Simulated scan of single mutants.
Amino acid sequence: MNFDELTRFLEKRVQKSMPGDAAHQKMKPKLPNGAPIKMTHATPPRKGGVLILLYEDEGVVRFPLIERPSYEGIHSGQMALPGGRYEEEDMDQYQTALRESEEEIGVDQKEVKIIGSLSEFFVSASNYMVLPVIGKIERKPAFVPEPREVADIVMPPVTHLIDSGRLKEKEMTVRNDFKMVCPYFDLEDRVVWGATAMMLAEFVEIMKEYPVR
């Protein structure tokens, strides 16, 4: 997979209509009986941004995922894309994704070129409306995890996302012994599920259109 050809393809592709919810649904957790999981919130969702950061490492196109530390919260210990909450000083959710990624994994936001974005995604578990931003950087980054927010960083190849053998499913138990059946991506021996997997599922759908040579 050629880095320059891929990023040129993505720059054009993100200008067209996106798969959106049809892609998200493929990785959506459900109850063990197959019923959908429903959550309601009393307040409007907050805005956020995450970054799919593409770079080349010895001919392999990769992107970083972070492992959240264990804490008393909804996303404790989960794999995620770098990013976070929109702040008033941010011009938009694109800047949110860049700023938060710099804070979490040490990537200089001035070196990241924005390619575009996927569909805005509602994270029902935490009541966030998140914009998944696609960016690229012309060198292999020297990642520096922010220890309060990042327990580890893994850098899977993009090709692993479109490898059907890495798309799996398992029953998981989360807070208060709540059981779910979760589709997930097996990336770098990590279980990437939930909102992150659903956002990446849309990226996978457009990547299927890329003519791999």
Rank of each mutant, 00 (worst) to 15 (best):
G106H: 10
M172T: 13
L51W: 06
L118F: 05
K168N: 09
G49F: 00
F3P: 05
G106M: 11
W193M: 13
R166N: 15
P64A: 08
R139Y: 14
R190I: 02
Y94M: 13
E88R: 14
F143C: 07
E138K: 11
C182S: 09
N2A: 05
N2E: 13
R62L: 12
S76R: 04
N33I: 00
G59Q: 02
P44M: 06
F122D: 00
A125G: 01
G194V: 01
G48H: 00
G20D: 13
K113F: 06
P64I: 08
Q109H: 04
E72H: 15
G135L: 01
A201K: 04
K47P: 10
V154W: 07
E171I: 00
F203A: 08
P19K: 02
R46K: 10
M198W: 02
T7P: 12
S126M: 08
R13Q: 02
E120P: 11
C182F: 01
I137L: 13
V191L: 03
E205Q: 14
D92M: 09
G135Q: 06
I105S: 05
A125T: 06
E58L: 08
K170C: 08
E103K: 09
T43A: 15
F185T: 06
E104R: 14
E120W: 06
H75A: 14
M172F: 14
V14D: 06
C182M: 12
S101K: 05
P145L: 08
I105M: 06
P36N: 03
I114V: 14
P157Q: 10
T7M: 05
M91A: 15
T173I: 15
H41F: 12
V50I: 04
A22N: 11
S119Y: 10
V112D: 04
E72M: 13
Y86W: 12
P29C: 10
I66F: 02
P19N: 01
E100H: 08
E58G: 07
N33Q: 04
V130N: 11
Q25W: 04
V212T: 09
P132W: 00
C182I: 04
D90A: 07
S117H: 14
D4G: 12
Y128E: 15
E11M: 14
L53R: 10
A197N: 03
R62S: 11
K30I: 14
T196H: 06
P132A: 09
G48K: 06
G34C: 03
A97I: 09
R8V: 04
E11I: 10
D177Y: 06
D4A: 05
Q109T: 07
V60S: 12
K208L: 10
